[in-house]
Design a protein around this nucleic acid. Structure first.
Length: 552
RNA sequence: GGCCUGUUGGUGAAGUGGCUUAACACACUGCCCUCUCAAGGCAGCAUUCACGGAUUCGAAUUCCGUACAGGCUACCA
């Protein structure tokens, strides 16, 4: 085809496209950002619900942009109208808000480089395709699905490379007349790239996470524009990330195999290529088969995003977990920097796992515990309250009514270098602090924990009468020892062990009796602290309750 | 079938040719501390890096092959 013919073809195919590439280049100027700033993007397609893997890549996008004072934007990739689900876009945005992984730019977030939704950028893609047609780098292909399937079959039998290329790309060299004729017949077509690649040549591609990879050059005539005029993912990716001036594309590693195509498109279009970082998928070792498999929402509930909210896992704790997956050295840093925030950690691509990352639930739970242990009582209260408002209204009300006490309970043993680590989730709080609220502390509480031993109510009543709640913890314990000795108990377990026949028991037994009566269990945080919050009257009430329970 | 990628303990993993008799964390076990638990301290937990070859004075680290796993091979993303 001559140059004039190509121009005619371009006009014939895209009569409504009046703008040129140059127009768009002007509309999307270079960003004014500091040296080294990363521009990242999260590009979900609204075809299903968000899962942990999606969250992981969005988290990485956010973190890298933030630490370089760059920009992180959201782009909705809705080029597949068939698979769109209702409410898909709203859901994505909702999840981003819920999980506090917020872009500073993009669809519904504003910005200068929009529209940030691909269905509204059709003209842009077509402008660039039109240009490619003019240059003879793209062409209309009229092959039907059946024809393509047949070619594929033939290729499989002959054991040659599968796809539309070389001799199989029959519409590559259609004359203008032939094309006009097919168009006149109303034949449908797609626009394909006239690939200049040679599969016998090797290219090397550098991925920021995976390192160097070798591929044969892409020689397939991939589809650029589908028959409805919308672009394929590949074409939209290249055009958008060029125009939006993305510097780093961070995405799942299911994309590495299309890398040669993407690189080729950047070259053909004369764009500066973005840098790529492909994240390994989150996997799990199947309990039954022992094989590593991709996680599924059905088998692995924590893969779905609902799980975290429903179970009361703090968002920040999940961030912590995502950070440990993102950079393998994060966890150690976090453990050694008790007073620092995630945002102070410097993430880097070469500290990212190359192989698949397996989900480790125990680690998540532990991270949650560490998270809670670093929170003050008031913060624990506020967060738990907000969670309960949504998931346990009754408890939320009780928390509100007992706010002051609850904060004090949550603060027990928070001072010093060894904070308690006993809650992992908001949903644990109700049970873990079951002794904190009078109205839910019932007789049944006693039977829940080792309820077969009976403790002496008379003795503990006497103990409470001499109890002074205004002293220090140390003074209290000394007094308790004295009380123990006066009543025939050893002052320490060690002494008791030496000659058990001389004593009725030891201080620990008295403490245990008190503990069971006021908390309904044999294990609890610091006893004296709990007693101080409860006060003498309520302690007496609990002893009375225990008396009834144990029929004394 | 073809093309890519990965494979280190119960788990997540560090490790880029000698500093590794394989870090750290989680889990587990034992001891210590101790009024219980949690936390904390100490110790134990892979003589070995999927397997087989090769290169090298020297390899978990480089190369080749095999096995296994994952991804892609669409007018899906």
């Amino acid at each position: 085809m001559t140059e004039e013919e190509r121009l005619e073809l371009a006009e014939l195919l895209f009569p409504n496209i009046k703008k040129t590439r140059e127009d768009y280049e002007k509309m999307y100027p270079e960003r004014d950002l500091p040296e080294g700033a990363m521009v990242t993007r999260y590009g979900p397609s609204p075809t299903g619900s968000v899962h942990l893997g999606n969250l992981l890549s969005a988290f990485a996008d956010m973190v890298y942009a933030r630490q370089t004072n760059g920009s992180f934007f959201l782009r909705i990739e809705d080029t597949d109208q068939k698979r769109m689900i209702e409410g898909g876009i709203e859901n994505i945005i909702g999840v981003l808000h819920d999980f506090n992984i917020l872009p500073n730019e993009g669809y519904s977030f504003g910005g200068e480089y929009g529209p940030y939704i691909q269905s509204e950028r059709k003209e842009i893609y077509q402008t660039y395709v039109k240009d490619l047609v003019k240059q003879g780098l793209a062409y209309p292909c009229f092959m039907t699905e059946e024809e393509i399937a047949q070619i594929r079959e033939e290729q499989e039998i002959n054991k040659v490379q599968i796809g539309i290329y070389g001799m199989y790309a029959v519409d590559r060299d259609l004359t203008l007349e032939e094309i006009k004729e097919k168009l006149a017949n109303g034949e449908e077509y797609v626009i394909r790239l006239k690939s200049p690649g040679d599969a016998n040549k090797q290219i090397e591609i550098v991925d920021l996470i995976k390192g160097k990879m070798k591929f044969p050059e892409r020689n397939l005539d991939d589809v650029l524009l589908k028959k409805d005029g919308t672009p394929t993912y590949h074409f939209a990716h290249v055009i958008d990330d060029h125009l939006m001036h993305t510097t780093h594309v961070i995405r799942g590693d299911e994309w590495v195999s299309s890398l040669p195509l993407h690189i080729q498109l950047f070259e053909i279009l004369g764009f500066k290529s973005v840098k790529y970082a492909h994240i390994a998928p989150i996997t799990i070792k199947d309990q039954e088969t022992g094989n590593i498999r991709k996680i599924s929402k059905r088998k692995d509930p924590w893969f779905g995003v609902k799980y975290y909210d429903e179970n009361g896992i703090p968002i920040e704790a999940l961030h912590l977990y995502l950070a440990t997956i993102t950079n393998t050295n994060f966890e150690e840093w976090y453990l050694n920097n008790t007073d620092k925030d995630i945002s102070e950690f410097k993430f880097s691509f070469d500290k990212q796992a190359v192989g698949g990352t397996s989900f480790d639930e125990a680690k998540l739970v532990n991270l949650c515990k560490t998270y809670f242990s670093r929170k003050r009582g008031e913060e624990v209260y506020n967060e738990t309250y907000h969670w309960a408002l949504k998931h346990d209204e009754e408890y939320a009300k009780l928390l509100e009514e007992n706010k002051e006490d609850m904060i004090k309970f949550f603060d027990i043993e928070k001072d010093g270098p060894r904070p308690r680590k006993d809650i992992a989730k908001y949903s644990d709080v109700r049970e873990e602090f079951s002794y904190a609220i009078d109205s839910i502390f019932k007789k049944e509480n006693y039977s829940k924990y080792d309820g077969n031993k009976t403790y002496d109510v008379v003795l503990i009543k006497e103990y409470v009468e001499q109890l002074d709640l205004s002293v220090t913890n140390e003074e209290w314990f000394n007094k308790t020892k004295e009380f123990a000795m006066e009543h025939g108990f050893a002052a320490s377990p060690k002494e008791y062990k030496k000659s058990p026949e001389e004593y009725k028991g030891h201080v620990g037994d008295i403490c245990e009796a008190i503990r069971v009566m006021i908390t309904g269990r044999t294990k609890s945080p610091d006893l004296f602290s709990i007693m101080k919050v409860l006060g003498k009257d309520r302690i007496r009430d609990r002893i009375e309750l225990y008396k009834q329970y144990s029929n004394q």
